[in-house]
């Protein structure tokens, strides 16, 4: 199913409004899922399920929201991502914008990588494949 980026954004918006019980106008490209939209861990699963259904795609575990990278001691040191960890994470998340995170790769700020834009980028690429 080919869709342009605007069409993807509108559908992602519908998914997030339903999954998180937020208002339409809260869904902005830069909004973070946990910080701005109040998503909890189970919401991420719900979002993945809904995206699969809405876009007719299969999202392998860890592809949209990598969750195993932080468990590798080589990738985290003193609460910050190591250069190697950051490289791995960037490789795993080509759909995310790393410009802020790279400047201060504090692990506690990792949730800020999960924005509305991250999801729209991901599904736009995925539906074009």
């Amino acid at each position: 199913m080919m869709m342009n980026r605007d069409e993807c954004f509108d559908k992602v918006k519908e998914v997030l409004v339903d999954a998180l019980g937020v208002d339409d106008d809260e869904i902005k490209e830069e909004a973070t899922l946990t910080g701005d939209l109040g998503a909890e861990s189970i919401d991420f699963l719900d979002i993945v399920f809904r995206l699969e259904k809405t876009f007719g795609i299969k999202i392998p575990r860890g592809e949209l929201f990598p969750d195993d990278i932080l468990n590798n001691p080589e990738y985290v040191d003193g609460g910050k991502m190591t250069p190697k960890g950051l490289e791995t994470l960037k490789g795993a998340m080509p759909h995310a914008d790393f410009s802020d995170f790279e400047a201060d790769p504090d692990v506690s700020k990792m949730p800020n990588l999960f924005t509305v834009k991250t999801i729209v980028n991901y599904v736009t690429t995925k539906t074009a494949a």
Partner: peptide
């Protein structure tokens, strides 16, 4: 939504 809690995301 149900969780299979042994396989949850937070480990």
């Amino acid at each position: 939504v149900f969780s299979h809690i042994d396989n949850n995301l937070s480990g």
